Simulated assay, not measured.
Amino acid sequence: MGHFSVGLFVVNALSGRLTALMRRGGVRRVQEHARGVALAPPAAVGPARTSGTTVAFWPDAEIFGTTRCSFAVLAERFRQVAFLNRGLEVSLTDERRAGRVRKVRFRFPEGVRDFVAALDAETGATLEPDVIAFEREDPRMAGTMEVALLWGGSREERLRSFANSRLTREGGMHVDGFHDGVAAAVAAWARGRGLLTAQDAGPGADRIGEGLTAVVSVKLDRPEFLGPIRGLLGGAEVRTCVGEAVREHLGAWFEERPDRAAAIVDRIIRDRHRQ
């Protein structure tokens, strides 16, 4: 999707050597590249019983200061990709040392719901055992969203945001929309029970974020990024769509679980009045 489709071209350009093995229509074909340039057209090398593509590449030592890959870094990234693509199985094998093969495999049937549960487990201070999660497609932003969240015992916010499975370190419109939606749902529930009056301002992002663990992932046909490193997602329609969806789903969750909603909202409103 979008500019992420150029990923393999970039890898090829930064590789001293790249080999692509393609299995399609019962035939295996191989094509070799050197520093981004094809050495010859794809050549048939035998029959194929399955379909798919296998890419092997060697980073160019004249470009990179080191060409040694970190197993831990790759494993964490593969784990992240598996979280963000529900049901996808990703494996990583390290055969660099004879007799010391390392291998990990990741697959998460619940996707971002599992992601939030894993992030919250790292805090060791869970208060709300249920992860609130939903997925929605919205043609207004030409894409889909997956959101999961819960409030725990930590005092800090742990929010991870992604666009097309890529981390958006600086946030963006999907994060703003998420905060809009959570604040709107909390304020609506509080006003409906007299915890806030019509004149009271609703809680801000700093209040709703305390103890909140969340993952906001959008997959867009035409993502708009701001800044040179593409870590900030733009697009006003993304903010609107995510905000509406979060408000609706969180509001429904509050109505279905009034006791848990009361504990969450009371904590937010009480801390707000203490300031």
Rank of each mutant, 00 (worst) to 15 (best):
F254N: 00
V6Q: 14
R155W: 11
Q199P: 08
R97V: 15
V147R: 03
R155S: 13
A214H: 03
R166P: 07
S70A: 13
F83H: 09
T240C: 08
A72N: 11
L14A: 04
R100H: 11
V11I: 13
T67S: 12
G209E: 04
G16C: 09
L39W: 01
R260L: 11
T168W: 02
R105W: 05
G177N: 05
M1C: 12
G7R: 01
G2M: 06
E237G: 08
R29G: 08
F78S: 14
E244P: 09
R96Y: 09
G16Y: 06
T240A: 15
A252F: 00
G16L: 06
G65E: 10
Q199V: 13
V11P: 04
E170G: 10
E122W: 04
A262H: 08
F64D: 10
R49V: 11
G16P: 03
G251C: 07
A262D: 08
M141T: 07
V30Y: 06
D180P: 04
P203F: 04
G231E: 15
G202V: 03
V186F: 05
V30E: 14
F178W: 01
L84S: 01
L18E: 10
R191H: 11
E170D: 15
G177L: 02
I269Q: 00
A20C: 09
M173Q: 12
R270H: 14
D206E: 13
A252E: 12
S154N: 05
L21E: 10
V182T: 06
E137Q: 07
A148I: 05
S51K: 04
Q80I: 04
R155K: 14
E95T: 15
I269T: 03
G171E: 02
V81Q: 08
S70I: 07
L195V: 05
W58A: 15
R49T: 13
V10P: 01
A61H: 11
G202A: 07
L250S: 05
T54N: 07
L14N: 01
R96F: 12
P42L: 12
V11S: 08
S91L: 05
V45L: 01
G153Q: 00
R274L: 12
R207Y: 09
A117R: 06
V27M: 13
A190Q: 00
V6N: 14
L250M: 09
R86M: 13
A34L: 02
H3F: 14
E255V: 14
S5F: 14
E157T: 10
R23C: 13
H3Q: 11
A261I: 01
L226K: 11
S15F: 05
D200I: 09
L250F: 08
E244I: 02
S91K: 02
L250Q: 04
E255F: 11
L92H: 07
A142I: 02
R272F: 12
V182I: 09
R239F: 03
E89L: 12
V101H: 07
R35I: 01
A121C: 08
L8R: 08
E157H: 04
